[in-house]
Design a protein around this nucleic acid. Structure first.
Length: 352
DNA sequence: AAATCGGGGAT
DNA sequence: ATCCCAGATTT
């Protein structure tokens, strides 16, 4: 005869799992990559979704699948064409890596996306998360994913307080226990959507959570203490952009390295620096400031860069400019991939 | 282990 | 205005 408990009993893992899958089957959203699911569509969507919210990805995914419906079309595409589709999505190395990987898949895997963990990990841009997502969603293999949503949920379920290496392993082993071998994809998607819609970083909707009976944080009312909020550490910058007009043409330069490699930018210098000396020395003998455009903000990670575009009309060009930059007709700017902040300025220039 | 890479949605 | 996101790669 079991003794009467003072606390409410914790829900077993199996019943909790059943509730989760039930919640997902009735609440899941209709997303483009959930139609006609193939290894290719899973791969592309998962890469686009890295550090990028669902609503942002949807139009990019749709455009991409229309232009590159399969790996064959992708593998023979010039990088420029792919980058134009990616423009505005951010983290541009993801796009370069997709191109690289598509060629590797063609060459080393007979044009088929591999269905083994190590093979997937060998491809550029595919880390632990993406490999597990492809294996579970596309090939129904029992690999749990650990994205930010899943980590947050398990942290709360188990009331883990400091996210370190050890707790990450706790999380992984918990997920391996919970994951239903016959429907790993459903489980992974259910967890991610739960994190996205119920188990929010702040003020989670615990009352509507199918896992609340299994959640130690909820039981102890710690759901707003776990996980700890991290301190910001934002760093602000100010940069002046030079919009140099020569006749109908504008000067842009292509990034040669870094994450923005391959993208085109207007020449930029820190605010403090005297830009007119630079123009005189490197670009043209004669110039005249013609306008000051509205600033736009360009931000990445902890940096918040405020861009101040200034237009100059230049003449008597130095010959050396062609090496680093390109004079482009204003109406042709749209054919050169740029980060969003720069695109906003380019849009102003291309209309009269 | 920590830094770095974008952009925008949500609050 | 601030936090965060279906992370990967480099330092």
């Amino acid at each position: 005869m079991p003794q009467k408990r003072t606390h409410s009993p914790q829900l077993g893992l199996k019943p909790a799992l059943r509730k989760l899958l039930q919640w997902f089957s009735s609440e899941k959203k209709d997303l483009p990559w959930r139609h006609d699911r193939t290894p290719y569509s899973v791969w592309i969507s998962e890469i686009m979704l890295q550090q990028t919210v669902v609503s942002t990805v949807i139009p990019y995914f749709t455009k991409w699948m229309k232009k590159f419906p399969g790996i064959k079309q992708l593998a023979r595409a010039p990088e420029r064409e792919a980058m134009v589709l990616w423009e505005g999505l951010g983290y541009y190395s993801r796009c370069r890596n997709i191109l690289l990987a598509s060629r590797l898949i063609t060459k080393k895997f007979r044009g088929k996306i591999p269905d083994h963990y190590e093979d997937l990990r060998s491809l550029p841009g595919i880390g632990d998360y993406t490999a597990s997502a492809i294996l579970s969603l596309a090939f129904r293999k029992p690999y749990p994913v650990m994205d930010a949503n899943v980590k947050r949920i398990v942290q709360r379920l188990l009331a883990l307080k400091n996210p370190d290496k050890k707790e990450e392993e706790r999380t992984r082993s918990f997920l391996r226990k919970m994951l239903p071998v016959k429907q790993p994809g459903e489980f992974n998607e259910a967890m991610m959507e739960l994190g996205q819609r119920i188990c929010l970083p702040e003020n989670p909707f615990c009352s509507r959570c199918p896992l609340k009976g299994r959640c130690l944080s909820f039981k102890s009312n710690l759901q707003n203490k776990i996980p700890q909020r991290k301190t910001s550490g934002i760093i602000g910058k100010r940069t002046r952009l030079l919009i140099l007009c020569h006749g109908e043409k504008v000067l842009i330069t292509q990034k040669q390295k870094g994450v923005l490699k391959g993208l085109w930018l207007f020449p930029a210098i820190p605010m403090k620096q005297a830009c007119e000396d630079l123009i005189k020395k490197r670009i043209a003998k004669e110039f005249e400031q013609t306008a000051v455009l509205k600033p736009v903000s360009h931000h990445y990670t902890k940096y918040r860069d405020r861009l101040y575009p200034v237009m100059y009309k230049v003449s008597a060009l130095h010959a050396a400019v062609d090496k680093e930059g390109k004079w482009v007709d204003r109406t042709a700017l749209r054919r050169f991939p740029m980060p969003s902040a720069y695109r906003k300025i380019a849009a102003l220039l291309s209309r009269p």
